[in-house]
Amino acid sequence: MNNVRTDHCFLADIDFADRTFPFSYGALPARLEKSIATAGLLQPPLLVAGKNGFRIVCGWRRLEVLRKLADESGEDEILVNLAKNISLQELFRRALWENLAIREFNLVETADIYCAALKIFTLDEVEKKIMPALKIPLRPRFRGRCQAISGFSQELRDLLAAGSVDAETVDLIKEWSADERSALIDLVTESGLRRNKLREVVGRLDDLARRDQISPFELLADVRQAALDEAGNIDVELLRRQLKARLYPQLTAAHLEFVARQEKFPWLKPFRLDPPPDFEGGDYRLNFTFTDSKEWEEICAQLNAVALEDIDELCRRS
């Protein structure tokens, strides 16, 4: 790099708030902290002069670790690479590829880089160079996803960066209002809903909201209340069941009816009868256990004595 020179600078001279090069977001990797604490800074970050101090082009995480360590050690002079007479576009490219060489970006970083690139490059350059590098498909859904993430609250962005919320969930909540998303964050925080279950819950909320033409906010308040256990905590499984019953009223009724129907046949007690998944198709499964030939013979005799009408009644579609 001809226009880059190594120099010393003070941490206080760095503009940590500047997000022209938004290549890092989220918790600092513990391994990086340990490495710098043990061996010091091995690779100087790349900075460029800006209005309010040096802008961080590359090395935000390293600098954040150093800032943290400086609070304890008091040392705030560090070695950096300073770029001069290099265009913003070129610096952006270098930072992008240097980061890509060593790690994957999380969802927030990807979104922020895309949005920042839109301000620096032409649309054509973004579509032909930046988006393929970030593995963002050239479709409105993915552009919309990035723009939405950039506008999310910090709480939600933190959850995304930590991997607690996935991209499919973002697609569903991006049209929600800030209040609705905030209510969802509260639900996640209170209930400890993990990523996959959260996606299922949000998917069902979205389906219900569209089907019944009501706001997710209203729905959330409703199901949240119904999913409280005796101690006043949110029971995740109850919450999921509530949503399923609401979205699938007829399937739920069919299950309840099937359970009730089984009660009519005392001979079923030692067995477990499973209907086909979602009652689709005709394959019912009868489960039982036995320990020896005598038990086997007894079960067979019991089954042979079952009236065929009972079988028809049990397997009847509701």
């Binding site: 089907r211 998944p277 689709e280």
Partner: peptide, 26 residues
């Protein structure tokens, strides 16, 4: 994505034997 206004997929769809989403048999 293509038809944000439609709500036709927000019904009681189950996974059919062919892997497709289809209305519950009832």
């Amino acid at each position: 994505e293509n038809h944000p206004q439609t709500n036709i997929t927000a019904g009681e769809f189950i996974r059919g034997l062919d892997g497709k989403q289809r209305y519950f048999s009832t």
